[in-house]
Design a protein around this nucleic acid. Sequence first.
DNA 1: CGTATATTTCGACTATTATGGAAATGTGAG
DNA 2: CTCACATTTCCATAATAGTCGAAATATACG
Lengths: 118, 118
Amino acid sequence: MHNKFHSEQTIKALSALAQEHRLAVFRLLVQAGAEGMSAGAITEKVGVPASSMSFHLAQLTNAGLITQRRQSRSLIYAADYAAMNALMGYLTENCCGGASCAPDTSRPRDSVDERKVV
Amino acid sequence: MHNKFHSEQTIKALSALAQEHRLAVFRLLVQAGAEGMSAGAITEKVGVPASSMSFHLAQLTNAGLITQRRQSRSLIYAADYAAMNALMGYLTENCCGGASCAPDTSRPRDSVDERKVV
DNA sequence: CGTATATTTCGACTATTATGGAAATGTGAG
DNA sequence: CTCACATTTCCATAATAGTCGAAATATACG
């Protein structure tokens, strides 16, 4: 019954995403891919004061949705796809009625056969 | 560019789910199916004071994730699968890296064919 | 009607989250 | 070593969210 762990983790992730600026940041980082973006670049793109952005980046990091690495003077943030995957998994598993949710959104996705390991 | 509408809606939904009791309620209602459950039954099952529960149910309703209907003296709440579907769609579309997210969740799903009519 | 049941609204309060300027920290260059 | 740069931490403040008892509302029943 380590189920509570999952829902706690889920709530953390949901809370992290449930905020205008943070959702914007996360979308940006998902687009940016594995390379990620520097805090400065993110801050500029999203348009909030640096200290506020730092706060939001910390929230997302704490929720495990993004990772941080240093590259010289800059801190580079990148989306953690596995974490997002896990979140989607939880929601699909617990919050979707049978077959309905998690549709293969629009684009052609034929040989979808990636077995979930989680 | 009615894109902002979507992300606003998404944030509302995420905020609604990002709370221990509300996530519990929503999961409960997803299980309960189209029939739904009375406020009283939910309150008892989740174990919070009635007035608190009322607050949470209002949040979920306001986010469009659940529906309310009256049945005699009781108010019956039910999960709105379409809304959850839309949320999953947004996340898959905007917050998932290419093919990775929204997997065909683990369990054997052979003849599961209950068309959720919603 | 009057009474019991189901649930919400009100109100007062506590707790958590968000904001942003100023100061501190880490890093590289000259 | 000093300076510029990138970013965070600190702190005070404002805003929002959550809690729950008590009073109000809606519905049914005799």
